[in-house]
Simulated scan of single mutants.
Amino acid sequence: MKVKYTVKKEDDFLIMTISGDLIGDEVGPKLVEVISDAIQENFKKCIIDLSNVRYISSSGIGVLITMLTKMRNVDGEVYLTSPSEHVKKLLIITKLNNIFSVFGSVEEAKENVA
């Protein structure tokens, strides 16, 4: 299933909603570019809504880590929200749940990091 994403800017949050299988192929560089552009616009908080992501491959994980690194390099942060059970297990197995802040919903993330 091809990855689609949408980007919204709300207050000082960049909110990215990803759907499909995040396997980092052609869409990976585009997602990283969105983060780079947001940093140019002085966004420091990025929420990535994973509620519609069924699967993440190792290169998809690489994309998420690249996005996080870019944000942290400018004292920003990336928050993940609404991972499916499968994605949640993946975050635990890869210990990424210790690196990323994971919230149940976009609203929850916004309330906790405002």
Rank of each mutant, 00 (worst) to 15 (best):
K2E: 12
K2M: 12
K4T: 03
V7I: 14
K8Y: 03
K8Q: 11
K8F: 02
K9D: 00
E10R: 14
D11G: 08
D11K: 15
D12A: 07
I15C: 02
M16K: 04
I18E: 03
S19R: 14
S19W: 09
D21Y: 01
I23K: 05
G24W: 04
V32Y: 11
V32D: 09
V32A: 10
E33S: 15
I35N: 01
S36A: 12
D37L: 13
D37Q: 15
A38Q: 08
I39M: 10
E41L: 09
N42I: 02
K44Y: 11
I47G: 03
D49S: 07
L50I: 02
L50C: 06
S51W: 13
N52W: 05
V53T: 13
R54M: 06
Y55V: 04
I56H: 06
I56Q: 14
S57E: 08
S57N: 07
S57H: 07
S59F: 09
S59G: 06
G60L: 06
I61M: 11
I61P: 00
V63A: 01
L64Y: 02
T66A: 11
M67Y: 03
M67P: 01
T69L: 15
M71T: 07
V74C: 13
V74G: 01
D75P: 10
G76Q: 07
V78Y: 15
S82Y: 00
S84V: 02
S84H: 13
S84G: 02
H86T: 01
H86Y: 12
L90F: 05
T94D: 06
T94K: 13
K95G: 06
L96E: 06
N97G: 07
N97P: 00
I99R: 10
I99H: 13
V102I: 15
V102W: 15
V102F: 08
V102E: 14
G104E: 15
S105H: 14
V106Q: 12
V106G: 04
V106T: 08
E111I: 14
V113R: 14
A114Q: 15
